[in-house]
Amino acid sequence: MQLNVPDRDYMHSGHVGCPGCGAAVAMKFVLRALGNKTIMVLPACCWSIIAGPYPQSTLQIPLIHSAFETGGAMASGVRAALDVKGDKETCVVTWAGDGGTFDIGFQALSGAVERNEDFIYFCYDNEAYMNTGIQRSSSTPYGAWTTTTPGRDWKRMRKKNIVEALVAHRIPYAATASIAYPEDLLRKVSKARSIKGSRFLHIFASCPTGWRIPSEISVKIARMAVQTNIFPLYEVENGRKYTINFMPKGYLVKEYFKLQGRFKHLSESDLDQIQAMVEEDWELLLRKAGVPLQG
């Protein structure tokens, strides 16, 4: 397939990520679609490290590292400064992990999109605080082991549905994307870049270190998350118009779960329960998108 995006990379070769890091793949693709007329705000997350310590940087765009919970606010400030100078061309983006988005940065994100600040907020989601050593976040899925949901206290709360929370703000554009579907990801970044106001991209980015998987199946796992309906690909315009971008073929969630060490404690009945939860969420999404239920 021919991609209608420049193939110029804005990452230098070499970074400080773990082998198989989905977040590094996500950054590479996103920067291709964004281009270099971009200023990035980077709140604390894995990428604070991946980009490299002073005096090195793997990123070729202007970048400000910042505190954990500042993604929405700091980007608002950068945007305001550019607006005052009459620079409408430069795209302001925030690049944050799930902890900085779902948890500690949620207030600043909500504030920024309520003001409909003109920026793109990217959340690369590896489903826990991976940089600090695999602690649970509100993005950690039901059933997962982390270092703060250890042993029999594995996480028994659902993953927060961050896209729906953003959709509730009626922002111009909110979408999910995955490192395993680069065409879809690049198209969504390009589309987001062409829209004014607050835009939100939720990118599924696997983490071999934290998920206890071999690094070579990083992309495969991300693909399975989509194919099992655990992480559906869809986009929502103006808080109302839902479009589902990938209709899965009905793979069972246990195929996805059994490859990952973080889920190895789950019983068959746990997996059946999770299967039912995933189906319930999927049907809810189909209804919102106005797609008739199958079967």
């Binding site: 705000v41 910042s66 400030g77």
Partner: peptide, 25 residues
């Protein structure tokens, strides 16, 4: 002739200011 950003907390006020000043305003 200025941008007035009515942020949702003081934490965001200073974060906004850091972004703005870093971008040269």
């Amino acid at each position: 002739d200025a941008e007035f950003i009515p942020v949702e907390s003081e934490h965001s006020a200073m974060s906004c200011c850091v972004g703005s000043a870093a971008a040269g305003a």
